Simulated assay, not measured.
Amino acid sequence: MKPIIGQHHVSMFTKDASTNVAFYTKVMGLRFVKKTVNQDNVSMYHLFYGDKVGSPGTGVTFFELPNAGHARKGTDSISSISLTVPSDEALDFWKARLEGNQAVVSRIIREDGRASLTFGDPDDLTVHLVSVQGAKPYPPSVAWVPVDIPAQYAILGLGPAVLTVRESAKTIDVLERILGYKKTRSAKALGDGTHEVSIFETGMGGLSTEIHVKESALEDKARPGRGSIHHVAVRIGNKEELEGWASRIAAEGFKNTGIIDRHFFTSFYFWDPNGIVFELATDDGPGYEVDDATDVLLEPLSLPPFLEERRSEIESKLHPIIEL
């Protein structure tokens, strides 16, 4: 089987879709590429952000849970996500921009030969901005540059995902033996500077492929809620390759969903022994079919063909997303 390529997307929970859209489009400058529903619970919005065309490796997605309480950060969870920026200079721009929008932002630190800063979004999701300056070449994306963000500072795509677990050997076994990742080094945790993480890469390597594993036996177990991360999705080239990966993972006895047609791509989810949810998602498929002139917020709800006959029922249970 061909190696996993790197990150595909990450999916989180938000309490309020309107606030979420305003922050990730107007503050972070991401493209709002798709307004749809959680296919497993169609009463719930599923919001997709990314580059200009929603390229794999740039996807940041949220499920809306209006009644969600705050998440409890802790072990056995995907504890933070990363977005990459073109340079160390870009971090100065983002620090000022985020502070100007009332976000809680850390100082810029340099660990493992790279500069980064950490902030909390409106749901208190932990996000790192990581400079790619001096790193391996970053996979090309199709820039989406709002008028008030200079092109040289615009977000490129996804960087490392950080997993915090009580027994790291179990998750490391999944990464190395099952998924084919290779440990490249140890370093201080992003945004931390004290705890050490083990860093794993796949495919061509680099920031867009990294998964960081932090062992913590002292923290309480994480509790899902607003600002928590549901899963990290990694990239598989096509459905045929995905079928091979799915067979291999299922044969190992991991809890899994089987292969699911998500219309935009094809997926396979499984749970590692620490409860971390991984999704394998294909690069092929129709994708998000984003038109240059489309304002997704004003467009009708996007539904895959297999939900289209339920459109009236689904739309009746959703509240409007308003522009803030």
Rank of each mutant, 00 (worst) to 15 (best):
P3Q: 14
G6D: 04
Q7P: 00
H8C: 08
H9N: 13
M12A: 11
M12I: 09
T14L: 03
A17Q: 05
T19K: 09
T19R: 10
V21K: 01
A22I: 01
A22S: 14
Y24G: 02
K26D: 15
V27D: 06
V33H: 02
K34N: 13
T36H: 00
V37G: 03
N38D: 14
Q39I: 12
D40M: 09
D40R: 11
V42Q: 13
S43A: 13
M44I: 12
L47S: 11
Y49P: 02
D51M: 02
D51Q: 05
K52V: 04
K52I: 03
T58N: 03
V60F: 12
F63I: 03
E64P: 01
E64W: 07
E64L: 05
N67K: 09
H70E: 14
H70S: 11
K73G: 03
K73M: 05
S77T: 07
S79E: 11
P86I: 06
E89T: 13
L91C: 08
F93M: 06
F93G: 02
W94P: 12
G100Q: 10
G100P: 10
A103P: 09
R107M: 07
R110L: 06
E111L: 14
D112K: 09
T118W: 02
F119L: 09
F119V: 11
L129M: 11
S131Q: 11
Q133P: 05
G134I: 06
K136E: 15
P139D: 06
W144G: 10
V145C: 13
P146Y: 07
V147M: 10
P150W: 07
L156P: 09
L156S: 10
L158S: 04
G159T: 01
P160Q: 04
T164G: 04
T164D: 07
E167S: 08
E167M: 04
S168E: 11
K170E: 14
D173W: 02
L175E: 11
I178Y: 04
K188H: 12
L190A: 03
T194W: 01
I199T: 08
E201T: 11
E201N: 11
T202Y: 03
T202R: 06
G203M: 02
G203P: 00
G206T: 06
L207D: 05
L207Q: 05
T209Y: 01
K214S: 06
D220W: 00
D220S: 12
A222H: 06
A222C: 08
R223K: 12
P224L: 01
I229L: 15
H231W: 04
V232A: 10
V232G: 07
A233P: 12
I236E: 03
K239C: 00
K239D: 14
E240A: 14
E240T: 14
E241K: 06
E241Q: 14
L242W: 02
G244W: 05
A246S: 13
R248Q: 12
I249R: 03
F254T: 05
T257C: 03
D261K: 03
D261N: 12
F270Y: 09
W271K: 13
W271M: 12
P273E: 09
G275P: 04
E279H: 08
L280T: 07
D283Q: 13
G287K: 08
E289W: 01
V290L: 06
T294E: 13
L297I: 15
L297S: 04
L298C: 09
L298M: 12
F306V: 11
L307G: 09
E308K: 14
E309I: 10
E313Q: 15
I314A: 11
S316Y: 06
K317T: 01
I321W: 03
I322W: 07
I322P: 01
